Amino acid sequence: MSFSPNRLLARLNIDPYLLLLVGTVGLASVLPAKGVWAGIAGGVADVGIALLFFLHGAKLSREAIIDGAKAWKLHLTTMSLTFVLFPLLGLGVQAIPGLDPTLTMGVLFLTLLPSTVQSSIAFTAIAGGNVAAAVCSASFSNLAGIFVTPLLTALLITGKQGGAFSTDPVIAIATQLLLPFLAGHFLRPWIGAFVHRNKKVLGYVDRGSILLVVYTAFGAAVLEGLWGRVTLGELGLIAVISLAILAVVMVASSLIGKAMGFSREDRIVLLFCGSKKSLATGVPLAGVLFAPAQVGAVILPLMFFHQIQLMVCAILARRFAAEAEAEGAVEAA
């Protein structure tokens, strides 16, 4: 049998894209963009972010929004996990002594982000959950995140740094992210089919934009002495904190789902959509909401959490799928 790197990564539950992110961080650490090149890279990254959100808007179906509104109890419960329980846990982490303040801020920031879309839907499908509800719930979360995440960030992070609530992040989001998103959505009747046909190619645009933002962010942070401030012990602690936050949210989602009387299929949606945080949304938002020298450290916890959530959810999805298959076999016997 021939050796396949992709097969090995899949067996280890490692997202190949994470390796690209790590490689980008390494490149930025060794060869950060300086001077005029930093300005050029930053400008291209801004264009990439606008294009990314334009494509997000073009992908969002108005019919999905209307259909999804019918399962409003499930969606509100998922949103409560995403934008209430997670931020409360993030605030609790602020009390942990010894962490670099920017990393602690990064942990809080990741708890303010919306859920993922693709992986939430994929894991729900593998586990035998309600895929239609997952599509709606994840889409609603990302749509709400454009408004809610900047407001929470201004209230809990950037506003506090300045001593008062700041509207600057809200204005920045409105002009740099929301307008491209709305433009893409309203142009969907004309460009939606093209986006759907070329979603694989356009996916490279999404990921390439994020890699460029990571490169510019970490380059600026490295020039400001990031790796002189952050220790390996702190990085290990961030991984432990990420795993602990994920575990608390998953247990809470299971208990809440049963208490609300949701079906097994809907409880799976609540678990996978309610416990995720979006790297694709978080990196561009961080680039808009924070100073260039802060962004690299701010998104470090998000990168840790992203991989941990993928590994844990992959294991759980396969377990649920095996349980459903076993139950089906028993019923058929």
Score class of each variant (00 low, 15 high):
6 N>Q: 15
11 R>D: 07
12 L>G: 07
16 P>T: 02
16 P>L: 11
17 Y>C: 09
19 L>E: 11
21 L>H: 04
26 G>L: 15
30 V>S: 14
32 P>G: 08
34 K>W: 05
36 V>L: 14
36 V>I: 11
40 I>Q: 10
42 G>M: 06
42 G>P: 07
46 D>N: 14
47 V>M: 11
50 A>E: 10
51 L>S: 13
53 F>D: 05
53 F>N: 10
53 F>Y: 14
53 F>R: 04
55 L>C: 03
59 K>R: 15
63 E>H: 14
64 A>H: 13
65 I>L: 15
67 D>W: 00
72 W>Q: 06
72 W>Y: 15
73 K>R: 15
77 T>I: 06
79 M>Y: 11
80 S>C: 13
80 S>K: 02
82 T>W: 03
82 T>Y: 07
82 T>K: 07
83 F>N: 05
90 G>P: 04
91 L>V: 04
92 G>W: 00
93 V>N: 01
93 V>K: 06
97 P>F: 12
99 L>Y: 01
119 S>R: 08
122 A>Q: 13
122 A>I: 10
135 V>D: 03
139 S>I: 08
145 G>L: 06
146 I>F: 07
147 F>L: 15
151 L>V: 13
154 A>I: 01
164 A>F: 09
165 F>Y: 12
165 F>A: 09
172 A>I: 04
175 T>Y: 13
180 P>E: 00
185 H>P: 01
189 P>C: 03
189 P>R: 07
192 G>Q: 03
197 R>N: 10
198 N>V: 03
200 K>E: 13
202 L>P: 00
211 L>V: 09
215 Y>M: 09
218 F>I: 01
218 F>D: 02
220 A>C: 02
222 V>N: 08
223 L>K: 15
226 L>Q: 12
227 W>L: 14
228 G>P: 10
230 V>I: 14
234 E>I: 01
235 L>V: 14
236 G>P: 11
238 I>E: 05
238 I>M: 10
245 I>W: 00
249 V>P: 08
251 V>S: 08
252 A>D: 03
255 L>N: 03
260 M>L: 12
262 F>L: 13
263 S>D: 06
264 R>V: 00
266 D>H: 07
268 I>N: 05
268 I>K: 09
270 L>K: 00
271 L>H: 15
271 L>Q: 14
274 G>R: 10
275 S>K: 03
283 V>F: 11
286 A>M: 05
287 G>M: 11
287 G>S: 09
299 I>S: 02
300 L>P: 07
304 F>C: 09
307 Q>D: 03
309 Q>G: 09
316 L>H: 04
317 A>T: 00
325 E>T: 09
327 E>C: 06
332 A>C: 08
333 A>L: 12
